[in-house]
Design a protein around this nucleic acid. Sequence first.
DNA 1: GTTTTTTCCTAACCATTGGTTATAAGATTA
DNA 2: TAATCTTATAACCAATGGTTAGGAAAAAAC
Lengths: 233, 233
Amino acid sequence: MVRKKRERAQSPPRRSEPRASSGGRSAAARNVLRGVETREAILAAAARLFVSGDYRTVTMRRIAREAACSHAAIFLYFASKDELLRAVAGPPLEELRERFALILDRRASAGRKLRLVSREFVAFCLARRTMYRVYFASNAARVDVRQEAGTLNEARIRLFELLAGLVRETLGLQEKDRRALQCSRIYFYMLLGIVSTYDQSEETTEVLLERLSPTFDAAFDVGVAGLRNFVNR
Amino acid sequence: MVRKKRERAQSPPRRSEPRASSGGRSAAARNVLRGVETREAILAAAARLFVSGDYRTVTMRRIAREAACSHAAIFLYFASKDELLRAVAGPPLEELRERFALILDRRASAGRKLRLVSREFVAFCLARRTMYRVYFASNAARVDVRQEAGTLNEARIRLFELLAGLVRETLGLQEKDRRALQCSRIYFYMLLGIVSTYDQSEETTEVLLERLSPTFDAAFDVGVAGLRNFVNR
DNA sequence: GTTTTTTCCTAACCATTGGTTATAAGATTA
DNA sequence: TAATCTTATAACCAATGGTTAGGAAAAAAC
């Protein structure tokens, strides 16, 4: 088929105003920044939209409108919608890790810390239902990870190891104990089960936590008690 | 905008051969059947495709090709892709219920039955990863259910009640015991956690079960032991 | 100060999707 | 034979993720 020669419409007005003043930076710095600013605007818009809507209903064009650029511009900074989601997913995960670290630094029993961390984890995932799947339910064994995905995966692995360590300590297991891996896996099942049960719920995080916190706490207890029984039998 | 008058291309050849011979039925019965047969063909094709690919990658056009009809024909029998998935999802769920019933009829302890049912459940969900979400992770509280979805929901609720009963019996709880609901919820978290952890894995069901069956069994044990501890404290 | 290069961005495009509609072939009925 | 009813399709639609030719402005080179 003959491709129709493309004809341009009359030159349209360009963007009416620059995105931001860029303060008193040098001309060179401002130039570099213009691109970075667009990237940031896209990330911010995507972050805002991805936490409210789900992956499918959030469109590139909607994100672009929110970021005040054309949807084609997004592909200048992110190879695909998927990569954009991953890029958005990174910082919150880091934030969660920091909150975990804060809890770990407290002077409390491993069991107590595990419970606090578990609560934090569930609240985090429920508040970001679109992303929890990207974070935790994607196959860790996947090897076809690009750079961005790689760092995300690393962050996730660190989080998991941290949690696994806490489970081990709570149960009084040695790191090299064969049952340690199995036990932390099982504890994760519990956590992921909670999250994925309410994944598609339309209730807000607050309502869910208000209503189900006691059940979640009970679940944490059940997990630990069951695991204790499992390793001591 | 003025809608361009639609012009039809020259009359194309119709479907070259009828779908099936319809045997020696009367003319009237054959006529009625032709439609039913198309419906069945669509259902069969969709069922085949939905178990291998996931919801997004299975397109209406692909299903149509597999069912040897136009993709528009599908909309004659199913209002939307979603409804088609639900229609496909129904029978297997019923089959699972029957397998559950078979286990329930055995002469064994409630604990033993619970374990068998749990295994069955996990294997079922892992074998139908596209659909498990439709089955079990959609919000039960949703009220905007149409007829088809309604029956599906009922089937799901029956399954849940059956499992909950088994959990109750295993723990020796009365039906009206306030903790019964909480306990079965927690047990479900465990089951759903297992399934959703491997939801996006690319390994086959066989490989997953081969590798992780012991861990799954351990998880069931942990759940029951933890719940025992929970109700007896 | 003028030209060249580089950076950043967009309009128009593409293929594909879920879904709708005008139209028609074939069977049934009158 | 004519009217109707059933079953189906080709062509259409709006929207989506993604690509590309081209251009405006800033920076660099002269």
